[in-house]
Nucleic acid binder design. Structure first.
Lengths: 138, 138
DNA sequence: CTTTGTGCAAACGATTTGCAGGATG
DNA sequence: CATCCTGCAAATCGTTTGCACAAAG
């Protein structure tokens, strides 16, 4: 576990979220992984050793966590939502072969001159999606 | 119409696509707009003055056009596919308010140093998604 | 006349929702 | 004990597919 149980509980409470076993499990699971799982993958993972949560509750938990900014959706054009407990801005690499997703630290692509976009548009942020082939698939 | 009928027919033939009224209409419609419509929007637009095509055929046509490289999918994290007859590389701006999508010319954000991504990844391409608020929504 | 496309309706996968019972603070 | 959450099943949304008929080359 990448973060202590008590710590996670505090984080949830600080966001005014009720601490239910299911919600805790979803967040703890996401903090533990960097592979941007889908809702289904989280469900499978949690229920590996006995039933912890159900489909609808996973979605509810993810939505609650997302609303308070503890979790973000990552959509990279596969027809599925992926989730990430790393809410700091960063970019993504996606392997077009196996679909694996990897974070690209923000600093690695920070030399982007956003001021060039047409006047009149209020820019809040941006992110780069890099596509290619990962080591395993080469 | 942004491009002559005969020209469109030639383009389709050059790609070895059979020229059906439906396929023609889908492609002509996409060439005519820059707003990256969804399949449903194309369907509605085409059938405005009498029935031209059906849902399944829109999807089939889009797939055929995509396979020969005349049309590309644009996925900007909304859970819908959008389509674009502009297949040259470019970036996208998306208004978080009304959902409008606008192209950003490739040159406007070309100062991106992709060489900084971690060694071992074979990079094929990338694109930037800029989010913000458009004029109409400000 | 062979091949490919069309349109309908049914199938599909991911996500959302209604609701009754249960847990949290 | 009031509020909010869970879990089930049914609903929904975008997209795909099977198939009989029709059109293109």
């Amino acid at each position: 576990m990448a973060q202590r149980t008590a710590e996670i509980i505090e984080t949830l409470k600080a966001k005014r979220l009720r601490v239910t076993p299911q919600r805790f499990a979803v967040y703890a699971n996401l903090l533990d992984r960097t592979d941007h799982p889908t809702a289904e993958q989280i469900l499978t993972d949690l229920n590996q050793d006995g039933p912890i949560s159900s489909q609808a509750t996973i979605y509810n938990s993810l939505q609650a966590l997302r609303q308070v900014g503890l979790v973000r959706e990552v959509l990279l054009g596969e027809g599925v939502c992926r989730y990430d407990a790393n809410v700091d801005p960063h970019h993504h690499f996606r392997c077009r072969c196996c679909g694996a997703i990897e974070d690209i630290p923000w600093q690695q692509l920070q030399n982007i001159d956003i001021s060039q976009v047409r006047a009149g548009l209020q820019v809040d942020g941006y992110e780069v999606t890099v596509h290619g082939v990962c080591e395993d698939c080469q």
